[in-house]
Amino acid sequence: HIECVVCGDKSSGKHYGQFTCEGCKSFFKRSVRRNLTYTCRANRNCPIDQHHRNQCQYCRLKKCLKVGMRREAVQRG
């Protein structure tokens, strides 16, 4: 199976330009649609994997963008 490029979980297909799991797909869509801004409580390099992906939204969104998920691919409302 193909892994989610963000957290390594099982990918459910290509979403917003990259293969991601449902969790990262939904997180990215929600973040972009609502134009959410997050803050990192650590050093902005938190581990984002299957077990830690919900611990830091700032670093999760940063990783989504770093691996090539595209904001412009998210349809507005």
Rank of each mutant, 00 (worst) to 15 (best):
Y16A: 04
S31A: 12
C46I: 05
C46G: 02
E22A: 11
N45F: 04
Q75Y: 06
N54G: 07
G8M: 09
K63C: 07
L61M: 13
Y16G: 07
L61F: 09
R53P: 14
Y16R: 05
F19I: 05
R34W: 05
G17V: 04
H15A: 10
Q75I: 09
T39R: 08
K25M: 15
T37Q: 08
K25G: 13
G17H: 04
S26K: 15
Q18H: 10
S12F: 08
Y58N: 03
V32L: 05
N43K: 12
D49M: 07
K10T: 12
R76L: 12
M69I: 03
G13E: 13
C4H: 00
K62I: 15
R60P: 02
Q50K: 13
K10Q: 12
F19G: 03
H52F: 09
L36G: 07
S31G: 03
F27K: 00
Q75A: 14
H51M: 12
Q18Y: 04
G77Q: 15
A73V: 09
R34E: 14
R76K: 13
N35F: 03
T20Y: 07
C56Y: 02
K14H: 15
C7E: 02
N54E: 13
C64T: 01
Q18T: 07
H15M: 15
K62Y: 03
L61Y: 07
K14P: 15
R76H: 13
K66T: 12
S31C: 13
K10R: 06
Y16P: 04
Q57N: 14
K62E: 15
N35W: 04
E72I: 05
Y16M: 07
V5A: 15
K10N: 14
K10F: 10
G68Y: 04
C4I: 00
S26M: 15
A42Q: 15
E22R: 03
V32S: 04
S26P: 01
R71V: 10
C7N: 03
C7I: 00
K10A: 05
E3V: 03
G23K: 10
Y38P: 13
R76W: 11
K63A: 05
C7R: 01
C24D: 04
F27V: 02
R53N: 10
L36A: 09
R41S: 15
D9K: 08
F28E: 03
Q55A: 10
V6N: 00
C4K: 01
C21N: 02
C24F: 01
K10C: 08
L65Q: 12
N45G: 11
Y16E: 09
R44K: 09
C46Q: 07
M69K: 00
H15W: 15
E3Q: 08
R34Y: 05
S12L: 05
G17P: 03
T37L: 09
M69V: 02
K25I: 12
A73I: 06
C59H: 03
R44W: 09
R44V: 05
F27L: 01
G17S: 06
C56M: 02
Y38F: 08
R41V: 14
Y38E: 06
D9A: 07
C46Y: 01
Q18D: 13
L65C: 05
F28M: 03
C59G: 01
E22S: 09
P47A: 11
T37N: 13
S12T: 14
R60W: 14
F27C: 00
L61K: 01
Y58F: 13
C56G: 01
N35Y: 03
H1G: 15
S26W: 11
I2V: 02
E72G: 05
N43R: 11
K10V: 06
F28A: 01
G23F: 12
F19L: 07
Q57K: 04
N45P: 11
Q50S: 08
G68R: 02
S26H: 07
I48W: 05
N43P: 05
F28V: 01
D9V: 05
Q50G: 07
V67E: 11
G68D: 02
N54A: 10
A73R: 05
M69R: 01
Q50A: 13
S26G: 15
R30G: 09
C24I: 03
G77K: 14
Q75N: 08
K25W: 11
K10W: 06
N35L: 03
C21K: 01
C40R: 00
P47H: 05
G17L: 04
V74G: 08
V6M: 00
Y58H: 12
G68W: 02
C40N: 00
S11L: 05
C56E: 00
F19E: 14
V6P: 02
C4W: 00
D9M: 13
K66Y: 10
R60A: 08
Q50N: 11
G13H: 05
T39G: 08
V32M: 13
G13N: 09
Q55I: 11
D9L: 06
L61N: 02
F19M: 07
C21W: 00
I2W: 03
K63R: 08
R70Y: 05
F28N: 01
F19A: 08
L36S: 07
G77N: 10
A42E: 13
Y38D: 03
V67W: 05
H51E: 10
Y38R: 02
E3S: 09
K62H: 06
K63Q: 07
N54K: 08
Q55F: 13
C46M: 02
K66P: 01
D49L: 08
M69N: 00
C46W: 01
R71I: 13
V67L: 08
R53A: 12
C59N: 00
Q18C: 15
T20G: 06
C64V: 01
R30S: 07
D49A: 08
K62F: 06
G23R: 09
R41D: 13
V32Y: 09
R53G: 12
Q75S: 10
K63I: 04
Y38V: 05
V5R: 15
C7L: 01
C7Y: 05
H1R: 11
T20W: 09
R60N: 04
Q18G: 09
R41H: 12
L65K: 04
T20C: 14
H52E: 13
L36K: 14
Y58L: 04
N43G: 12
S31W: 06
C21D: 00
Y16N: 03
T37C: 10
L65H: 14
K63G: 03
V5W: 11
P47V: 11
N45K: 05
E3G: 04
L65V: 10
V67M: 13
R30A: 08
G77A: 14
Q55G: 11
K25Q: 12
N54V: 10
D9C: 02
G68Q: 02
D49S: 10
C46V: 04
R34L: 07
H1T: 13
G13P: 07
E22H: 03
G77W: 06
T37V: 12
